[in-house]
Design a protein around this nucleic acid. Structure first.
Lengths: 183, 183
DNA sequence: TTACAATGTTTATTATATTAAACGTACTGA
DNA sequence: TCAGTACGTTTAATATAATAAACATTGTAA
């Protein structure tokens, strides 16, 4: 075997918060069978593996498709987030460095008091949204304008001209997402 | 088994213009083994099936993908996820009202201490990411697991089974985004 | 026809997977 | 502290898969 069948089954089982005995009961096999499979001490018959996956439930196709999934970097520590506008009035921390081919761009944004994306109102394709965490953010989309506070959010077609501006005395913090990446 | 494994193997073998003996030789099994499998008179061990497919050659993922039925309604899987973890332990607010036709789904999520999605979801939505704002969130993606704190983030292919769990004493807060199902 | 080679199938034996039950550990509440 | 429970692991017995070899059929060439 060129992949760790046991480890994969164990990962999937634990992901579903099932004990070996609980899964065994649902699958109609014994807990010992699952234990031995997870330790790679046996190579299960397809009928057994099918029963076990039915108990989760997961299809054989999905189970084996997991090995074909290319693994990207998944977790990012705070200081690993790419600082895009560092030092300026507006700074961005981008979730994921290497965005090539990715379908989403997620940003943790900080606006200094009074910071403004400017009047240019960049137009990029697709859609965009975000949640305000701290401070007050004035959002202008087309002819609509509104000041958002913590917990407020926005969502719009980003082909419409738009603009962000931090108002008030304190810094403003936002998490936003847009698709596709516009950089 | 809810599908005809033997017939599928036979079809694949004949498609490649291989005799049972020729394939057996390449695979390192006996011709009898292949005959019995194709007649569904045995349920092959995974090690045997793997050897046989290697002789064709074809991956297990491809072999089982042949039976894969297109998963519709994956779009609603997220709602199911939230219902399961619901009852107050996990609350969320979706940015925007009607999700239909949108390119992005953005959620502001709050996990009570110990709250757990408890389910590994398989979705057709391509990618997913988020930023932790408060508390400690244990994120499991495939067989990778990590505890994230404020400012930390995650990003992954959401077809991989995944799970979120709030650890520690304080509530956990996250803003996440994912691309919609691809039909 | 005859002989031969290649095909898929079947069978007795051997190897292995699965079961049922026991085992060890850790956690929990009385 | 002591049961009681749930967990993963291990082991002897049993069920099943894999092998090696024989069997049956078909097609082809001498």
């Amino acid at each position: 075997m060129d992949f760790d069948l046991g480890a994969r089954l164990r990962a999937v089982r634990e992901m579903h918060a099932l004990s070996q005995r609980e899964l065994a009961k649902r699958a109609g096999v014994t807990n010992g069978t699952i234990s031995l499979i997870e330790q790679n001490r046996v190579s299960p018959s397809l009928s057994s593996l099918k029963k076990v996956l039915d108990g989760i439930p997961m299809s054989l196709a999905d189970f084996f498709a997991l090995q074909a999934t290319p693994r990207l970097k998944t977790f990012f520590a705070r200081d690993e987030l790419l600082e895009i506008g560092g030092g300026g009035a507006i700074s961005y921390r981008q979730v994921g460095h290497d965005l090539a081919g990715r379908a989403l761009q997620i940003l943790h944004e900080r606006y200094a008091p009074g910071a403004d994306t400017g009047k240019a109102m960049l137009r990029h394709a697709a859609e965009e949204g975000g949640v305000v965490l701290k401070g007050q953010l004035e959002v202008t989309v087309g002819d609509q304008r509104r000041v958002l506070g913590p917990g407020d959010a926005y969502y719009f077609d980003s082909r419409v001209p738009h603009r962000f501006r931090a108002v008030g005395d304190e810094p403003c913090e936002v998490v936003s997402a847009c698709t596709p990446p516009s950089f």
